[in-house]
Design a protein around this nucleic acid. Structure first.
Lengths: 204, 204
DNA sequence: ATTCTAATGTATGCAGTGTAAACATTAATG
DNA sequence: CATTAATGTTTACACTGCATACATTAGAAT
């Protein structure tokens, strides 16, 4: 028999939301179906999320945490260029394998991160780690490092966006190597590609 | 007196949708309010747009056309590196000044561009022009040029995304130069920044 | 010019949505 | 053990996308 109180509703809602967001895209997500899925009344979620945006924020936070885990660089050990390339790949892979969640994280679904401290925090941590890594690699002032970070991050972030729009980039070389687009070529040689990019930013 | 038939409903709907999408974000847009705005019954728009996604597609198409106009490079004249930098700036400016529309264009609101030939066409034209510009600049094979294009495009596209999340990049140097973030620093020196990036891709 | 048809509009209705308000149950606290 | 705060439910409202059936009219065919 089930009790009146669920016991772990908030987390279950988040988990379920993450799953559905990734599967169908965040626009398809409804609080009501979410509630139904957890066997709870349709307004129960409002005890844990004031608005739908707040729910989005939780899903996005979860996404940033996963992203952070995927491309965390250990600052205590020696940092090399290879690390940046490797983790950059992980980042891109995350973006491609979690396209809908990524959209939620970087789109306009959550207007102002400041309203959700945990989200802001988790979103920053990835960037902070990247900055730390850079500062261990190159001995430069903060501003120069921030610049390099944003340059690399932009590149990586942009690549995720572009690679997802392969259809948009319709340059197929069907004659010689089959119907392989440049985009997927890059996707299949991410490391090589990223290495070039990173090399343009950092030396050793 | 107004006649039963509107006369120019489709275009008026698109224009209105573009305005509202940019102002409030595409998620806030409703077909009903759009119809009301044009003084027409709430289901009239369905004579011109089968689904809401189709309406989105039209707005996105409009966006891509504007984007294309903003960063078109005349292929008949001599192409220089400066052109790429300049038009790259225009691209970024467009993205920042039309954030919500840009979101619609590159997000997941319109699932498959192939379903909307005009959208696909307009989306490709920007990329095609960029490729042509590159091929006039550097004398390389198609694949190499496509690679360079995607690299630059990713960079630019990514920069738009990152610059919009200034809050996310919370590295302020309040001590010396006031509350200016690295992101806004870059935004204010876009040309310099882009020049570096482009220089890493192309020589002359 | 008249008729026919396709294009474009309206009226109505359904199922689904976010969320506000009032109330019920129970876990936690003093 | 009594009180309160947390967490549920019920009901209701205004809104949404969109399907269906019907009305008007512009333009092509006769």
């Amino acid at each position: 028999m089930k009790s009146y109180h669920h016991g772990n509703l908030k987390q279950e809602l988040i988990d379920c939301a993450c799953k559905l967001c990734e599967r169908d895209g965040y626009t398809k997500l409804s609080i009501r179906t979410l509630a139904k899925e957890s066997g709870v009344s349709q307004t129960a979620p409002y005890r844990h999320f004031e608005t739908k945006e707040a729910l989005y924020a939780s899903v996005a936070t979860d996404g940033f945490k996963k992203l952070h885990r995927a491309c965390y660089i250990d600052i205590n050990k020696k940092v090399t260029k290879k690390h940046l390339v490797e983790k950059g790949c992980k980042y891109i892979e995350f973006g491609l394998n979690n396209a809908n969640t990524y959209d939620l994280m970087f789109g306009t679904a959550v207007g102002d991160f400041s309203n959700y401290p945990e989200l802001l925090e988790s979103a920053n941590s990835t960037y902070e780690n990247m900055k730390s890594a850079f500062s261990k690699l190159a001995n430069e002032d903060d501003e120069a490092i921030a610049f390099k970070c944003i340059t690399l991050w932009s590149m990586i972030h942009g690549l995720v966006g572009i690679l997802r729009k392969v259809q948009l980039v319709g340059d197929n070389y069907e004659e010689d190597i089959g119907p392989i687009s440049t985009a997927s070529l890059i996707a299949n040689n991410l490391e090589v590609h990223l290495d070039k990019v990173v090399s343009g930013i950092v030396e050793n």
